[in-house]
Amino acid sequence: MNTCPRSERVVALFHDDELDSPLRREVASHVAGCVVCTRTLAAFERVQELVAQAVSEQLEESDFSNFWEGVASRIDQQAPPSWRLWLQLWRERLRPAWMPGTPVWVATTAALLVTTVLVFHPPAKDSPLPLPDPAPTVLAANDQAQIESLSSTATVFLWNEQEGNATVIWVGDDYEGDRP
């Protein structure tokens, strides 16, 4: 049986065009004169041809006419819910630099929300508390939403979308700028 000192792996590197120029030329001239390496190279080429052919046959039978529609519907299914987009928008664009980070913000908001509910909706029906002075001021309103100040020191802003049943509360400890 014929053998060759050249490794099959070198022939593979040659076949895959992974050799640098001087070695590539050397291997090319060796393969041209070596029966064993010529046969090895031919076998690599044949495997490549068969694999490519088998895949391309199946590819030709594939239907791409609704491919994009399939991708688009998957993208829509993966889209994050709107509240997450709002939160992201708040974090990246709207939150002023002086505002505390999310955990402090959430804790403060939760505490204020509980306090507000207790003040405006006392458990006993027959002992209503008087409204705080000044009363909440409507700062902006449209069909779906309104923005109210719930604090006379302008530290809490409430944005309430009744249709979507969504509420965004904006809290600032030392807010001194213009109201939104």
Binding site: Q58, S62, D63, F67, G70, V71, R74, I75, Q77, Q78
Partner: peptide, 10 residues
């Protein structure tokens, strides 16, 4: 194959 590719693009 079509499903996996669409999933990959999404």
């Amino acid at each position: 194959a079509l499903e996996v590719s669409q999933e990959a693009f999404a």
